[in-house]
């Protein structure tokens, strides 16, 4: 079966203005709206479109995290994923460990394509896809804004600093997606009901043979430096004057 594996992460919702705990021990997540990482939603949308074009037969969505991640996986099933894999652990894992889990899942599911967001909007690491590709010894195409599949190959347009780069990779491959690849669909109520009947499997790290080792410890959380309050000017001439005064013109 031609399968696509999509990795998703549960994160603090895009619209939430985060707060740091007063003792600097973390970010307040209690009572905060959680969502599927927006980049991962784009990855899932792309997988669904590929399947709808007939170029894939099954879309599997997977996450690694505590029991609380279930609603986000259900959302993905409601969007159209065929089944969900929840690798359940209460230990926060580093990207390399997540990549090892995904590597184990590629062994189990044999996907021809793994789609992931280019980064999670909480820790902003931007590592997991590339790490998976390395461990799997397969190609990577990061920051994708266009994915074209042909027999055994993918042609991917990537958003890079100097413009748009196109590369060709042999499949299977890992593709991480950028914002302009597509616009994810909205979930409709009947789909949420249907999603409840879709296969949902819970796995453990042990069953996948992954023993994570912490290599990085966060010792402090702090707010960013604030900029000083600025001034208002009334027209273009005053603006020019202010810039000249600062020696910028």
């Amino acid at each position: 079966m031609k399968r696509i594996l999509v990795g998703i992460k549960r994160v603090v919702d895009y619209n939430v203005r985060i707060r740091i705990k007063p003792d600097g021990s973390g970010v307040v997540t209690e009572g905060v709206k959680m969502s599927v990482n927006p980049f991962d939603e784009i990855a899932l949308e792309e997988a669904l479109r590929i399947k709808e074009r007939g170029a894939a037969e099954e879309v599997i969505v997977a996450t690694v995290g505590p029991a609380d991640c279930q609603p986000q996986l259900r959302t993905c099933l409601a969007m159209g994923a065929d089944r969900a894999l929840h690798v359940q652990t209460d230990t926060p894992l580093e990207p390399l460990a997540i990549a090892r889990v995904l590597r184990a899942l590629t062994e189990r599911e044999q996907p021809f394509l793994v789609l992931l967001g280019k980064q999670a909007i909480d820790d902003d690491h931007g590592q997991t896809g590339q790490m998976l590709a390395a461990l799997w010894e397969r190609p990577q195409a990061t920051f994708a804004s266009k994915v074209e599949l042909s027999e055994g190959k993918a042609r991917v347009t990537r958003e890079i600093d100097t413009g748009l780069e196109t590369i060709e990779v042999d499949l299977p491959a890992v593709v991480t997606v950028d914002l302009r690849l597509n616009e994810p669909r909205y979930v409709k109520l009947p789909d949420i009901m249907k999603a409840k009947k879709k296969p949902f499997e819970t796995l453990t790290l042990e069953a996948l043979g992954v023993a994570p080792r912490a290599q990085l410890k966060t010792v402090r959380y702090a707010p960013p430096a604030q900029r000083q309050k600025g001034v208002r000017v009334n027209d273009a001439a005053e603006l020019i004057g202010a810039l000249k005064q600062k020696g910028l013109l």
């Binding site: 580093e94 990207p95 390399l96 990549a99 902003d124 690491h125 931007g126 590592q127 997991t128 896809g129 590339q130 790490m131 998976l132 590709a133 390395a134 461990l135 990577q140 990061t142 920051f143 990537r158 958003e159 890079i160 600093d161 290599q215 990085l216």
Partner: peptide, 20 residues
């Protein structure tokens, strides 16, 4: 984008951590 693409692949080959 050059380094963001490349460095995690290096880190994984070295089985070590990346600080982004």
């Amino acid at each position: 984008t050059f380094g963001k693409d490349l460095m995690p692949r290096i880190a994984a080959l070295l089985e070590t951590v990346q600080v982004s």
